[in-house]
Design a binder for these strands. Structure first.
Lengths: 332, 332
DNA sequence: CTGTTAGCGCGTTCAC
DNA sequence: GTGAACGCGCTAACAG
């Protein structure tokens, strides 16, 4: 069954194809009467314009490409959902792709661009070489970074308020009266990790509490490293800290697992907090800082859409507030 | 900067546009020599054919629509990733959308179909009225169901081997020597819940172990209901079961939380197992059954692609094996 | 094997 | 206000 075309509508309503096109594009040069009539016929025949044909002439696909590193699929789901929600509000769709490694990512993007599959790109954990990005710019393809800010490279970005979030979290722990606090950090290369650590240290300092160097333990954001760090702490024979602030939830969970195995519980024996608010931690009662992934997706899509309207001076940074989520593990 | 077109390639390589088209579509009616030459020019000029133009004539978009209920975004991420992996292998892309409620879902799908945004549809938790599906069929849009099988409605489906998975899990618990086992079930309406329960009961029976009615506790797949059920068990004053089989992980986690609060640990005090293998449970050491979401996505995309090649007799069911994942909570 | 011709379904001039 | 003619970039006959 062949789909109905503009031409069919034209015939059925006794006008020309261009008139139908005009009502489709909401052209003002149309009498209300014919507009009504044509609209009716379109409804009755259940007509939608062919995107391919429209794209061909407008050079727009009404799709936003979202490319995510393969690992991040759970994380990505929320970003997609957020982006999709604003996309849908604007007649757009989300073209989702996962990349396995940097070089494949570049190929994917190149295809998106050259095939004109999408009007703009949203890239998670953007990590592309500068010259590659320059080429994209030449192709007139707006690109948005989610997660790691890339504003200095002229790319509108949306990222999390790591600083304020960590500061607030740390403050909360300090307000509980804890003074001997250990911090489980992320890998040294991590942008998020650095920001979070700095803010935690800052909060401690403001509270007149200086953390000795051996209370800053370097992990890698994996739950395994959380387990390792906690084990070291317990096996060191030294005095245990009153509280632990893990710079992400996975490490916090790892730490809690070890505690659990040793018959310790949070916050009774050691208070603990994390960062991210991944699904699991609600169930564990972990106090943490929420990274609103859905909203990040929304924000990214908004930026993308704005770029498409030429509204945005390329460099622009949108910081999503991170909300302290208080559960029981902190001692509350 | 205007994108290069087929025409540009034709000029640059001294042939006609159709020749370029032929090498693009891998037509055999081309001399190896010119093919090489044209290919070279395409590479050099970094040319990719415009999808819109191609779609317009071939009536194919090379996109697979995936629509997921909004709630399932974490779950959906893995399905997307899986579907995308086979899509990519075939030059396809994934158009992802989230629906909020059934009526919006229908609207979304209708647009997909009429605008010809996608060549086939993959629907998660398909729950569409029969007449609606009939219309889709009239529009020649293949549709695949993921999760709930809908084969009886003539729709190719991919779902999980709930039965075998649960049977194996239950067997494992029985092999541990547990005879007094409580089961936390899903909501009565749930397809998955029913299948899992039946298999558990079957396994018990085979082992010559009959579970009394008060050992079948009705939950709703939420962690809250797991907590509630466990609390009831503990507060009942009656003898505790040796083991608990929760028909999904969320309930198992809820139950573990309550145990934890009461100073009990699994498997020491009560052994426990779940179903799904969501991210959280690895960290908790929960024995469970893995639902391979990535593979389900792959399978769905394969089915969709096959439909597009006319290879599939509409009704077809693809059951993804569910793998027992043994951790510590069962007593191992 | 290759070039020429004709649309695919739509938006956009330009006349009327 | 409305219709006719043209072109977006590509594939698919039809000739040669």
């Amino acid at each position: 069954m062949k789909p109905i075309s503009q031409h069919d509508i034209a015939e059925a309503s006794g006008v020309s194809a261009s008139t139908v096109s005009r009502v489709l594009t909401n052209s003002p040069l149309i009498s209300e009467a014919t507009r009504q009539r044509v609209r009716e016929v379109m409804d009755r025949l259940n007509y939608y314009p062919s995107l391919a044909a429209r794209s061909l002439v407008t050079q727009r696909t009404y799709a936003l490409g979202v490319v995510s590193p393969f690992i991040a699929d759970a994380f990505a789901g929320h970003i997609f959902a957020g982006a999709d929600s604003v996309a849908a509000e604007n007649g757009y769709h989300i073209l989702a792709t996962f990349s396995h490694g940097l070089s494949e990512e570049q190929d994917l993007i190149k295809r998106f661009v050259r095939e004109r599959r999408a009007d703009a790109l949203i890239v998670l954990n953007l990590n592309l070489p500068a010259e590659f990005l320059a080429n994209l710019a030449r192709d007139n393809m707006p690109i948005i970074s989610v997660g790691k800010p890339a504003v200095e490279r002229g790319i509108p970005s949306v990222s999390i308020a790591n600083g304020p979030g960590s500061f607030e979290l740390m403050n909360h722990m300090l307000n509980h009266g804890y003074r001997d606090i250990a911090i489980f950090t992320g890998p040294t290369g991590s942008h998020d990790g650095r920001e979070r650590l700095a803010a935690c240290l800052g909060a401690a300092q403001v509270a007149g509490c200086t953390l000795p160097g051996d209370r800053i333990l370097t992990g890698d954001f994996s739950s395994g490293s959380g387990e390792r760090l906690m084990t070291e702490l317990l096996d060191s024979g030294k005095k245990l800290p009153e509280a632990i602030v893990a710079l992400n939830d996975a490490m916090a969970i790892g730490a809690m697992n070890v505690m659990h195995q040793r018959g310790l519980t949070a916050p009774r024996d050691i208070a603990i907090a994390g960062f991210d608010d991944i699904e699991a931690v609600d169930l564990l009662g972990l106090t943490t800082v929420r990274v609103p992934r859905h909203m990040m997706g929304r924000e990214a899509a908004k930026l993308a859409l704005r770029c498409l309207n030429g509204e945005i001076p390329s460099p622009s940074l949108s910081i999503i507030p991170a909300e302290l989520v208080i559960r029981q593990s902190c001692g509350c």
